[in-house]
Every structure is written in C-alpha cells, then in structure tokens.
Design a protein around this nucleic acid. Sequence first.
DNA 1: CTTTTTTGTTAGATAAATCTAACAAATTAA
DNA 2: TTAATTTGTTAGATTTATCTAACAAAAAAG
Lengths: 216, 216
Amino acid sequence: MTLTEENYLKAIFHLSTEKQDVSVLDLANSLEIKMPTVNSMVKKLAAKGLLIYEKYRPLSLTESGRLEAGVIIRKHRLVEMFLVEKMGFQWDEVHEIAEQIEHIDSSVFFDRINELLNHPKFDPHGSPIPDPEGRIASTEYLKLNDGQIGKEYIFTSVAISQSSFLKQINKHGLRLGDKLKIIEILSFDKSIVVSINGQSTENLSGMVAGNILVSE
Amino acid sequence: MTLTEENYLKAIFHLSTEKQDVSVLDLANSLEIKMPTVNSMVKKLAAKGLLIYEKYRPLSLTESGRLEAGVIIRKHRLVEMFLVEKMGFQWDEVHEIAEQIEHIDSSVFFDRINELLNHPKFDPHGSPIPDPEGRIASTEYLKLNDGQIGKEYIFTSVAISQSSFLKQINKHGLRLGDKLKIIEILSFDKSIVVSINGQSTENLSGMVAGNILVSE
DNA sequence: CTTTTTTGTTAGATAAATCTAACAAATTAA
DNA sequence: TTAATTTGTTAGATTTATCTAACAAAAAAG
Ligand SMILES: [Mn+2]
Ligand SMILES: [Mn+2]
Ligand SMILES: [Mn+2]
Ligand SMILES: [Mn+2]
C-alpha cells in the first residue's frame, strides 16, 4: 500500500466512527483533497477489495480495509505512546510526528516499541491501540456534553488530536482519569460547569465538552 | 525537498567521498534507477542550485547541496544511534529503518533524539554525525587493507552498512575501538591476518578488510 | 411537485518520477 | 587512427496522485 492509500483508509475509518454514513464529500473535506480525486481513489481502493463503492452510495470499508486501517492506527498510537513515555514529549506534540512515522515499513521497529512500552492498550489520548492484526477494541465512550447534570464521569479520552485543543485541556487543569461531575449546563451558550476530582470547578465551552470523552 | 530529491543528494554525497568524480552512471547504479531518469533529475537539482551539471561532465554538489545532504545524513545517523542506544537494536539492524526515518520532517523530533543521546558525535558504525547545519567533520580513516604489516591500528569505522557485512564483522569478533595489528598479508588471495587487542588472531578477506576503516 | 442546492461523476489536464528506444559523445581497444 | 565499447542524452510513453470544468443525480427547499 502507498502512503496515499494508507491515509485514505485511515480517514474513512475515523469518519465511520463519527457518523455511520461516509460520503465522498466527507472524505474530500477530511483529506483536503478535491472530490474528483477522491472519487477516482475510492474506485481504486474498491478494486483492491478494501472498500465497497457503488455510485452515489455511502462508502464503507470491507473487513480487510478495516484491518488494514487498524494496523496503521496501531502504529500511529504506539508511536504516540512511545514519544510521550520514552522521549518526554507532551500529549499535544505527538500527533503530527506520528502521522509521519505511522507509514514506516518495519515490523521489528513497531514490535520493539510495543515491547519497550509493555504492550500498552491505550495511547496518550486514551484511544485504544488495535491488536497486531488491526482489530480494534470497541469503546463505549460518551461525549461530556451528552452527560447528565449531577452525574460524575471519568475523563477517559479525547475525540480530536489538534494541539490547540489539547493545550486548552491542559489550561483547564484536566487530565485523563480525572473525575468530572457535571454541576450545571448554562442555557445561554450550552457551556458546562464541572467539578474536577471534587476539588476545583471549571467552565467548559460546548466545543470543548463535545470533544471530551467520558465513561461512567 | 521531496524524498526522491533527498535520496539523490545523499547518494551523490556518499559517492563523492568514495571517488572524486561522480558520473551519471555511478548515480544510476547506486540508486538502482535508469540513466535517463537520473539525467533528468540531476538537471532538476542543478536548476535548484543543489548541484553543478554540465553535459558529459562529472557531477558535483554545490555548497548548498552538500549541506542539505549533510542534514539528512545527520538525521540518519542520529536515528541509528538512538535505535542502538535507546531501543536495544544491533548495529546491523538499524540502517534500513534509518533510511526511512531520515525523511521525517520534524525538527523537535530529531532535536529530542540528539538531547537524549547527549549530542553524540558518531553513529554506531563510527561515522561522524554532521552538525545541525549539515557540516560534516572530515575524517582521516584508512582502509585496513591499505595498512602496513606489523603496524597496529584502531578499528574506528565501517565503510558500508550492509547487514551481512556487519554480521560477519560480529562473527570475526571485531568491535569498534579494537586494536588491530596486521600480522601478515597472504599473497594468494590478499586476505589479512590480524591480531585483535593482542589476544586472538583472525583472517579477514580482502573484501572484508576493504570495508574496515582504521586510524592510527 | 418543481426548483434550487448539494453532492457525485466524467473527462481531460498537469506534475513528479519513472521507464524504453534511439541516438550521440567520449573513452578504450585494436 | 579507426573501430568498438561505454557513457550520456533526447524523445516519448507510463503510472500515480492531483487538479479544473462541465455535467448529472440526489436531496432539500419552496
Ligand atoms: Mn494522533
Ligand atoms: Mn492519539
Ligand atoms: Mn546507515
Ligand atoms: Mn551508520
């Protein structure tokens, strides 16, 4: 597989977890590539048996396509974990580097990272690391802004990797594993007031809360 | 610069250290790319001011081309050192991985490797690591088979990175820093008998000795 | 139910990096 | 010093991944 094909598969995979129907336009927007280019690339991926393509129908990965995507996501997340745990990077610095290193073709390299990290199950953003075959554990995370007032949740993962978002999470004093209790949802802008580990309280914008993933 | 351009520059750089005149054919052989392709690529690199090209004349890098090559070689060698020192790889396993990682575009990544290794000056094969601007220290290494009988040398570096060669060096029980005394040069096949640190003796073929670099 | 807007497709062009075939210059051998 | 060989160049084709322009289908709005 080429780097380009790997990026298409990964993008389709990620879009599928956000919305059940993935369109050519979604893919084009997510990859910042024009629709006709995407249209011809998905035909090519379909010819390789990695996705199902029928004119004017939503795209979907085949089992094989999902596993191929999973293998790349595994490499990405292992690298992110290595950068944080073994090389001293912050969680907001690693995504861009991992976007490149995930395409390195060397099983010994990623196997060694996996061993040095003691076979981690999650990356620094709380996302699950697929197994070596590309199978990914399904997670039952809830967006914080879908939570109920008065209930306490555990901050388990983040939905996006944008550095500016992760830095803002830092600013709010939030860390994975924190207990977040929803105190109040402000009617004016839908921002959410949470207590953090029963100690401080913070006001999180809807945009921030929508990318905070929690479990019960 | 594209990955392809980086590989051309690096190849020209390395060929220049082996022979003063680098031809289009040399480059084509070294990159395993056909001559007409190389011919048009060198014109392109010349247009970018990275090398001097005149029809039917040997190729040579400009100062700028040399520095660009040096920067890539720096990344390659830093990575090799990191793989050996921090990730537990053997010196015969790292070259192929470094060939890929050297193209990663992230100064923080390579800066961090450099810091974690305490600004190393040499890679695991004894090759000097260029400075961040791409300037490379000139080395005065001698090929072992150009040495004199009875003289003792220090095994300082290897001329090639092929895994099979490095494994054979291991088999001979040789390690960088060993003292090698040339006991005898066998007239039949030009193989060389050396004593290693005054302890054991080994017979090294001309092919092996030609890739062992020593200093006095 | 039309009309408008959005989404998707086709056709054809372009740039990068490669190739083969043909030919020309330079070098080496006879 | 001519002929043969090696090396280098030109011309033109191919593949991959991209684009724009034009058109067509589907979905949304009126
Ligand atoms: Mn990431
Ligand atoms: Mn991540
Ligand atoms: Mn190397
Ligand atoms: Mn090396």
